[in-house]
Write a protein that binds this DNA or RNA. Structure first.
Length: 84
DNA sequence: CCTGAGCGA
């Protein structure tokens, strides 16, 4: 399942985010939306977890917890909206 | 920047 993680501090990189979620289960993929031009993080990203239960658990455990000074907002991700 | 790509900041 894909997790949607918002309100991430811009100093947080994918590695840090992965490590954070690895604590609750196997992370299959990590994607932080970094602005391509400025190189800055957009402040949110996605974490793919192999196990659904672990994903839901991570949501409960990491939601609204402080990470690098910001309260994390974790939720299930919607299927990618390749807006057309 | 609370829903991911590249094409224009």
């Amino acid at each position: 399942m894909d997790l949607f993680v918002a309100n991430i501090n811009k100093t947080v990189r994918e590695d840090a985010l992965r490590a954070l979620f690895e604590e609750f289960g196997n992370v299959s993929s990590v994607k932080i939306l970094t602005d391509k031009y400025t190189g800055e993080s957009k402040g949110y990203g996605f974490v793919g977890m192999s196990n659904e239960n672990h994903g839901l658990d991570a949501i409960k455990k990491l939601s609204n917890v402080e990470f690098f000074g910001r309260k994390l907002v974790v939720n299930k991700a919607k299927p990618k909206t390749t807006a057309y």
